[in-house]
Amino acid sequence: MDRLKAMGAYVRAVELGSLSAAARELGTTQPTVSKLVAALERELGARLLERSTRRVLPTEEGARFLASARRLLEDYEEALDDIAGGVREPRGLVRLSAPVALGELRLNRLMLQVLAKLPRVQVELLLEDRFVDPVEERIDLMVRIGGTLPPDLVARQLAAWPRYFVAAPSYVRASGRPRRPQDLRDHAYLRYAGSDEIVTLTGRKGSMTLELDSRYRVNSAIALLEAVQGGAGVALQPSWMVDALLRQGRLVRLLPQWTGPAQTAHLVHAPRRRLPARVQAVMEALVAAVPTW
């Protein structure tokens, strides 16, 4: 029996909750995964999984073994990476999760630059705004914006971008320019669906809160930006998203003495004693580039 292969099949079956899901990920069949786990159980002399028609769960012994199996698999991967790192450049697949807007507007270009620099590295950029579980979904690195970070993950702050009130020049010509925050109540305020109607603003003389109702809300940052550029109204947007458009004159910053709450980006990964060289290489590219946006 290939113990490492059997342990890998067992770990993924538990993480995914299904032998068939583990088989699909590993590129094999459900009976093959079942046989690998059964052989592992025979060798250990303990039942590792509770099987049902819908999902599998670790037994008490299986839960204890799971932590050890993960460590062994990580140690093996690190050992291979250690040897390889001394004789060749980073290689292999890195799975990176990020919010859709940041990925489409910034990270996509950066990852192509990484691939050009590191020809043996592969990158799978997964763009979605929901929070993903890096263990369950086998994610190496996550760039997350806002939200509460689980305490069992390793997080490093990458950047904190101020938010500006912006509008298209056509909107300003048609609707005028607000002179003070309270004037925004008379404008078409656009916001991200799910965000609070109460906005906290910071200026030279302190901070204030303002309630801004919105007739239009959308759960896509890119769609919101498109609406603003099209002259539909005023929005509070992070600097990384609008700085270039402001320089080009395609957007106008309103109330420049006021900024909204900073948008904070973190680089997140599951705890490991040491990240593989391929993951470290992508991490270094993110740490170098993201704070400059």
Rank of each mutant, 00 (worst) to 15 (best):
R95A: 06
A21D: 14
P261Y: 03
A288S: 15
L245A: 14
V199I: 14
R250H: 11
A244M: 04
E211L: 14
E78A: 15
L73H: 03
R217I: 05
V14I: 11
L201A: 07
G45S: 07
R71A: 13
Y164D: 02
T148A: 15
M208Y: 01
E77A: 15
F65I: 08
G249F: 01
T292K: 13
A9P: 00
F165P: 01
L141S: 01
L225K: 06
F165Q: 05
R130G: 06
K5E: 13
R138W: 13
V56P: 01
P119Y: 08
G230C: 05
V252C: 01
Y164L: 13
A285H: 12
A168W: 08
P178Y: 03
A155F: 03
V11M: 07
P169Q: 09
L36E: 09
A227W: 03
L107A: 02
A232D: 09
G233C: 10
G17C: 03
A288C: 06
R177P: 00
P58Y: 03
Y171E: 04
L118Q: 11
V218F: 04
A116L: 07
A116N: 07
L224C: 04
R24W: 03
V218P: 00
V234T: 10
E197Q: 14
R273A: 10
P256W: 05
F131H: 08
T264G: 03
D213S: 12
D243W: 07
N219H: 11
A23K: 04
A84D: 12
L112I: 05
V132N: 07
G233L: 11
A155G: 11
A159I: 02
R42W: 02
P150R: 08
L201T: 03
E89D: 13
P271L: 10
A221H: 09
E211T: 15
D213N: 06
L224V: 06
A159M: 02
A265N: 07
Q182T: 09
R120K: 14
V282M: 04
R215N: 15
G203S: 07
S97P: 00
L93A: 01
L246R: 05
L118G: 00
P162L: 11
L127T: 01
G249Y: 01
S220N: 13
M241E: 14
A289R: 13
A168G: 09
P99R: 07
S175G: 08
L267C: 05
A227S: 13
T32V: 11
L286P: 03
S97R: 05
G147T: 09
L96V: 09
D75Q: 13
N108V: 02
K35S: 11
L80I: 09
V228A: 06
N108I: 00
L224F: 09
L246E: 08
P256K: 04
T209M: 12
R215V: 13
A168S: 15
T59N: 10
E124P: 02
P151W: 06
A270R: 15
